[in-house]
């Protein structure tokens, strides 16, 4: 067992352990934070596997943006701060299928690779990855940017407050603006503004 293996083992243990906590904790916010740990450990594994650019992109985007978004959503949906009891559905189909999938895949991969060793390739630096992306993979790259654009537009459209309102309801809202407590509108606007700002 080389040092690389030990590192991989340790980081893998951390990732799996925090993953277990993500899916089983009763505290919503702690789940988000455990996710951070998990994603960080995975980023570490990327580093060990010489995927430098991917590792840092992972930290930037996954840990920095995605998890933040998730935590924002947790806050905006009025998640309880402490433990909550009603977070889980019946466990047996989940355990069955999740266990089946995970252990099955693991068995498959163990069967494929056993205890073989490979040489680590040259590092995936920004320069080298950039060469590949903008040379061989430029078309998917461009399509991805269009996809990002449409996702952005879609998210904004979806978070408009007037979606899903029936005409009668909107008429009621327009007719009785004074009845609505003043605290709602700022919260709504803050919500949509917050979501728009997270992009």
């Amino acid at each position: 067992m080389t040092g690389v293996d030990v590192l991989l083992l340790a980081l893998g243990a951390v990732a799996v352990g925090s993953g277990v906590f993500v899916v089983s904790t009763r505290h919503l916010v702690r789940a988000g934070l455990y996710l951070v740990v998990c994603l960080g450990a995975v980023a570490g594994m990327y580093l060990v596997l010489t995927a430098e650019l991917v590792a840092w992109v992972q930290v930037l985007i996954y840990v920095g943006a995605v998890v933040v978004l998730l935590l924002f959503a947790v806050m905006l949906t009025r998640a309880p701060i402490g433990a909550s009891d009603d977070l889980d559905r019946p466990g047996w189909p989940a355990a069955l299928i999740g266990g089946g999938v995970g252990l099955g895949l693991a068995a498959l991969l163990i069967d494929a690779f056993r205890w073989t060793t490979v040489e680590l390739p040259e590092a995936g630096t920004a320069e080298r990855i950039g060469e590949q992306v903008f040379a061989s993979w430029v078309l998917p790259f461009e399509v991805l940017s269009i996809l990002l654009l449409s996702a952005l537009v879609g998210a904004i459209v979806l978070s408009r407050p007037d979606i899903g309102r029936t005409p009668g309801d909107s008429a009621a809202r327009d007719r009785t603006p004074g009845d609505r407590p003043a605290g709602d509108e700022p919260a709504e606007r803050a919500g949509s503004g917050g979501e728009g700002g997270a992009r």
């Binding site: 189909p93 299928i97 999740g98 089946g100 999938v101 099955g104 895949l105």
Partner: peptide
């Protein structure tokens, strides 16, 4: 997911 598991099996 159950279907995916069964197909994989």
């Amino acid at each position: 997911l159950a279907g995916a598991l069964l197909i994989a099996l």
